[in-house]
Design a protein around this nucleic acid. Structure first.
Length: 590
RNA sequence: UGCCUGGUGGUGUAAUGGUAGCACAGCAGACUCUGACUCUGCUUGUCUAGGUUCGAGCCCUAGCCGGGCAGCCA
């Protein structure tokens, strides 16, 4: 568990609305939803939304439905359903998993009568039900179709025969009104007949659409008789070949929310212009239960990364990274593999807040929450990334001193472990300077330094090859400065990390850095031109032997270096692979 | 420039007509068997111009600047 301070309850304009809706009795029970389209992987931006929706549900003893918004069969795939579901479980595990709304496998909305009006409702699974699965908008295709006919009956929808290009032309532009479709005034009977035949598969793709009848002169282009259904003779990942007409977002989303009893439908700012349509649709249908309402917040922008689905897709497809779970990606799968704890992602979502202001969050905020959490929990180990051999000349080759290293400086409960001091050890090459800068307080000619958990060593001389390259450094060890020895409290300016040359295990370490060299790669003409060529550096390191047996996914702090997580995919005891999750803060490097 | 939105230190946010606060970053110092952590201190802000008011970041008017919208995507 994390020792992060229990966050005070978040407060923002959405939560203010929820609180007021509760206090004035509009929504006694709070239901939110997270509605991903299964056509990509979840990323940090989605995490912001999940934490908002789940957080609100959690704080109000409500529910947050996971619903796949899968109304476009040509783009969607079950691979994404699987990954998205797994990522959400990871993100909210031990926090909000209790309020996640899912349904019994295969369950469909049930018909009911409310105030003598036919109605449908999609209920979540009762607690303890097994097996369960997320909700799917595609489970509502039948109900959606019924509502489509209902709109026709009310004279608020019509079948249009315009081609896609014609529809575009007729729509006009933001500054010019559109023109009404020549098919706008078909009779209800003809519309009904045509819509049924659309469903029956009588027409080819694109031949006809179902459209709402609103206002072709509206200044809001989304109100200019928007499309409700299109014809697509393709199989759907969830409904198979059952349908050849598929509803569009503006029609499906609001009704899906209604069917699930959603009270607060929270989305990002680009949907503001769709809100009048959301409300128009539900009002037109004259539904018997309370209607959901849409609220919008600003999506996340994080410096030195990007979230656009298409661009993330391109990074993967063009092999700029190695898959959706590449640790350099801001995908939840990538972050998890990199070693970022879910609780840090949640804390990040909390710290950045929720507003309608289009902001750019500094990378330091995200890095900060990761360090905060890992610092409190990660056990300490010693590892040397760029080894330099030190020979302790006053020790014999077979001399071994057992030293005790503490696993965590602030948490004694995590215990100790043995490390062995031997005649030859490796230290970080950076921790020795033949010509040191003035404030350098590591090993240097004429100086002494402490080997952490070991003893103080004093410089003797350097050994070089014929080409004047540094081969090794000779020192003498003062064994009386070890723990438990009389001079253990002796002070030296510097303390450095090290590993015994006898015990050290080879490990591959992947040093990750930001993927892009500019704060806003998304605003670049071609974001591939600003990829950081050094976003991944692989080194062969010398690490403590206990690290070879570490469980995959465990994160350790390599003292004075950073946090490293055993790669869950490619590591093995015979060949450990560590991903650098994040460096330690380094005020010296500046 | 049609419609919709939004502008508070370097960054992200709070203050809902009554002392502009918090976090991150930065700087300085203390502590340190991690140049980490922790602790202390400091610098820096209400887009502009008018108006209402005893009092305006908040309300009103005008302007300036930013973001979004014209998929049979979501």
């Amino acid at each position: 568990m994390s020792d992060l301070p229990a966050p005070s309850l978040p407060s923002d304009f959405v939560r203010d609305i929820v609180a007021s809706d509760i206090s004035n009795g509009r929504t006694p029970q709070i239901v939110t939803r997270f509605p991903p389209e299964p056509n990509g992987y979840l990323h940090l931006g989605h995490a912001k939304s999940i934490c908002l929706n789940c957080g609100i549900a959690l704080e109000n003893q409500g529910r947050c439905n996971l619903r796949f918004d899968d109304t476009n069969p040509v783009k969607e795939d079950t691979e994404f359903v699987q990954s998205i579901t797994a990522d959400i479980r990871w993100l909210i595990g031990d926090w909000a998993d209790g309020i996640l709304g899912e349904k019994p496998v295969g369950a469909l909305p049930s018909a009911q009568t409310v105030n003598r009006i036919d109605d449908f409702i999609a209920q979540p699974a009762a607690p303890g039900t097994s097996p369960v699965e997320p909700f799917f908008a595609s489970d509502y295709f039948e109900q959606l179709y019924v509502y489509g006919e209902k709109l026709i009956e009310k004279g608020r929808a019509f079948v249009c025969d315009l081609t896609a290009a014609e529809t575009d032309t007729y729509r006009g532009s933001p500054t010019e009104p559109g023109r009404e479709s020549p098919h706008r005034n078909r009779s209800i009977a003809e519309n009904r007949d045509l819509f049924r035949r659309m469903r029956a598969g009588e027409f080819p793709d694109g031949a006809r659409t179902l459209r709402a009848k609103i206002d072709m002169a509206s200044p809001n282009v989304w109100l200019r008789d928007p499309l409700l259904y299109r014809i697509r003779h393709v199989a759907h990942h969830h409904t198979g070949a059952s349908w050849c007409i598929y509803p569009l977002y503006d029609f499906a989303h609001c009704i899906s929310d209604y069917l699930e009893g959603v009270t607060h439908s929270i989305c990002t700012l680009e949907f503001v212009v769709h809100r009048p349509l959301y409300d128009w649709m539900l009002e037109s249908l004259e539904l018997p239960r309370a209607r959901p309402h849409q609220y919008e917040f600003a999506k996340l922008n994080l410096a030195y990364t990007l979230f656009s689905k298409r661009r993330l897709m391109r990074l993967v497809q063009e092999n700029h990274v190695q898959g959706w779970d590449d640790p350099r990606l801001p995908t939840l799968a990538g972050l998890r593999r990199r070693g970022v704890p879910a609780v840090a992602v949640r804390e990040f979502a909390y710290r950045i807040g929720i507003t309608k202001f289009d902001s750019l969050t500094e990378a330091a905020v995200f890095e900060g929450v990761i360090r905060d959490d890992l610092n409190t929990r990660a056990e300490r180990r010693l590892g040397v990334l760029n080894p330099l051999k030190i020979v302790l000349t006053n020790l014999a080759a077979d001399e071994i001193y057992d030293c005790e290293a503490t696993n965590h400086p602030k948490d004694e409960g995590l215990g100790n472990r043995p490390v062995r001091l031997t005649r030859e050890v490796y230290i970080e090459a950076d921790d020795f300077a033949e010509i040191p800068s003035p404030k350098f307080r590591r090993l240097k000619p004429g100086g002494s330094v402490r080997l952490k958990y070991g003893c103080i060593v004093t410089y003797e001389n350097v050994v070089k090859d014929e080409a004047e390259n540094l081969v090794e450094v000779h020192c003498t060890a003062d064994l009386t400065t070890r723990r438990g020895q009389p001079n253990s409290n002796q002070k030296v300016k510097g303390t450095i990390h090290w590993v015994s040359a006898v015990d050290a295990v080879e490990a591959e370490i992947r040093l990750y850095d930001r993927l892009f060299t500019v704060p806003e790669p998304d605003s670049e003409d071609d974001f591939t031109t600003v990829l950081n060529p050094d976003s991944l550096l692989t080194v062969q390191a010398k690490v403590e032997p206990v690290l070879a047996e570490a469980p995959p996914g465990t994160c350790y702090q390599f003292e004075r270096l950073g946090y490293f997580t055993l790669d869950a995919k490619e590591s093995s005891p015979a060949r450990p692979v560590f991903n650098r999750t994040i460096t330690l803060r380094d005020t010296w490097a500046k």
